[in-house]
């Protein structure tokens, strides 16, 4: 059992939790992920590591309450326990041998972009960060990004905070202005990552994306997370989750990620009783 030692609501849909998991904390690196399972009936859900404290033995996760399991996790409070928490899985973000990078984060993907930006910074790399949100009320980790970057560009779709526009607009502008990057790292919704890759392609800038396909075991066993990269089948859990974005078949990934969509919306309704029960148990 793994204890939730801290819980913070970052915005109405996004929650931060710090979980006591000493073995995971000891090895975790930016770009890697964990898999959690709430209870005996729970599914295995992968989440990218948002931070870790090796001394305290804790790992931070930041998640959007979109599906059944993340909604249920969101119902839990500080001091509660979850059944399983395994990691660190996947390969860490490669921070070696770079002088200057641009980290692009979109929405809740910023939670994952942050530790990578920080890791680059700590490795002595010059870091530009572009983060994008729909509007001001869902901006997260602004202070953290300021510390982890040399330049922070904050974008909102509606212009309610920072500059108005998509992250790709700012990225295009920076590239056109002649900024040279050894690498662009894009983490966010699939369409955003796809368009970041389209933006960087004409400039010939290497672009890494962090993929989030459906997984079960996370150790290479099920093959459910297979993605096509450069015409080859790769397993995101062991070969990734970071891949060369110019080689990724995004359309295929998008399609595969939708496989349980109908079921998920039904289940959230029919399984609401479990959610409610969980809530009741917590109140009592």
């Amino acid at each position: 059992m793994y204890k939730i030692v801290r819980k913070e609501e970052l915005n109405s849909a996004v929650t931060l939790m710090e979980i006591e998991a000493p073995f995971v904390a000891k090895k975790a690196k930016a770009g890697q992920f964990i898999i959690f399972r709430i209870d005996d009936k729970g599914e295995r859900v992968p989440l990218t590591i948002a931070g870790y404290d090796r001394e305290k033995g804790t790992v931070t996760i930041i998640f959007q309450k979109v599906g059944l399991s993340t909604k249920m996790l969101g119902e839990l409070q500080e001091g509660d326990y979850i059944q399983d928490f395994v990691g660190p899985l996947g390969k860490p973000t490669d921070v070696e041998g770079k002088k200057r990078v641009c980290v692009v984060g979109g929405g809740v993907g910023c939670a994952i972009a942050y530790p990578s930006a920080k890791a680059f910074k700590e490795a002595g790399v010059e870091v530009d960060v572009i983060v994008g949100f729909r509007s001001k009320d869902i901006v997260i980790l602004e202070e953290e990004f300021k510390e982890a970057s040399d330049h922070l560009y904050l974008m909102t779709d509606d212009g309610s905070y920072g500059e108005k526009g998509f992250v790709t607009v700012k990225l295009q502008e920076l590239l056109e202005a002649g900024n040279q990057y050894d690498e662009v790292l894009a983490i966010g919704p699939i369409p955003m990552m796809k368009f970041v890759c389209k933006t960087t392609e004409p400039f010939g800038v290497k672009t890494i994306v962090s993929l989030n396909p459906i997984m079960v075991d996370g150790t290479g066993m099920c093959g459910g997370c297979r993605v096509t990269v450069g015409g080859e089948v790769k397993f995101a859990c062991v070969d990734g989750p970071d891949f060369d974005g110019h080689q990724v078949d995004f359309a295929e990934l998008m399609n595969r990620n939708g496989v349980y969509k109908e079921r998920e919306s039904q289940v959230v309704e029919t399984h609401m009783c479990r959610l409610e029960k969980l809530g009741r148990d917590l109140i009592q």
Partner: peptide
């Protein structure tokens, strides 16, 4: 093989 509805036996059996 990447279509929705294609499983490895491992994935199907694990689920």
């Amino acid at each position: 093989e990447a279509l929705k509805g294609v499983y490895s036996a491992n994935e199907y059996l694990t689920r």
